[in-house]
């Protein structure tokens, strides 16, 4: 059972991550339910997704129940912290250094250097999955990204994922 909040600003690719993880969970035969933000808020406003794997009916996570928070924007971390359970972990896109229970990767700057800001979500994903104990493995994600239809996007996403993983590996050393 996992309950995960993904958050950021409209346009940062929160829905892409939610859908990617949900597709993989579904292919693995798991029960998965999620909820996402659409409409006016997406115009640069605050957005978040709830993703729940396990025997859940509701697509929303209650306050104090999320296992982890994957945040593409540090100010959005503050807006979503109340969803975290005690001891829940935060994975954040930020240039600051990591602390206990709060792991940071400078995904925006790394993304610019490997092909464009739009890759920051996949970098953060690689970073987060390496550091968490989750129903979905890095190999599951590699496989799913490798099935992407457009060559350039596929190669860039895979490179972004590995870039995130390398930062996480270095952090653990």
């Amino acid at each position: 059972m996992t309950q995960m909040i993904l958050c950021g600003r409209g346009g940062q690719g929160i829905v892409f991550l939610t859908r990617l993880l949900g597709d993989i969970a579904t292919q693995k035969g798991l029960n998965v339910i999620s909820s996402e933000t659409h409409g006016m808020a997406v115009r640069g406003g605050s957005v978040n997704s709830h993703l729940k794997i396990g025997p859940f009916s509701s697509p929303l996570i209650r306050w104090g129940q999320a296992d982890c928070l994957v945040s593409l924007d540090s100010s959005e971390t503050l807006n979503n912290e109340h969803f975290l359970k005690q001891g829940g972990i935060v994975f954040e896109n930020s240039s600051a250094s990591s602390e206990s229970g709060l792991y940071r990767v400078d995904a925006s700057n790394m993304a610019r250097s490997i092909g464009g800001i739009q890759l920051e979500n996949v970098i953060l994903l690689g970073f987060s999955i390496f550091l968490s104990n989750f129903e979905i493995s890095l190999d599951d994600i590699r496989q799913q990204l490798a099935e992407g239809s457009r060559y350039r996007t596929r190669e860039q996403n895979l490179a972004a994922l590995e870039a995130g993983v390398r930062v996480a590996e270095a952090l653990m050393e």
Partner: peptide, 12 residues
């Protein structure tokens, strides 16, 4: 209730 400072939506 948590304090939420939601970013307001804006024209692109």
């Amino acid at each position: 209730s948590p304090t939420i400072r939601a970013r307001r939506p804006s024209l692109c």
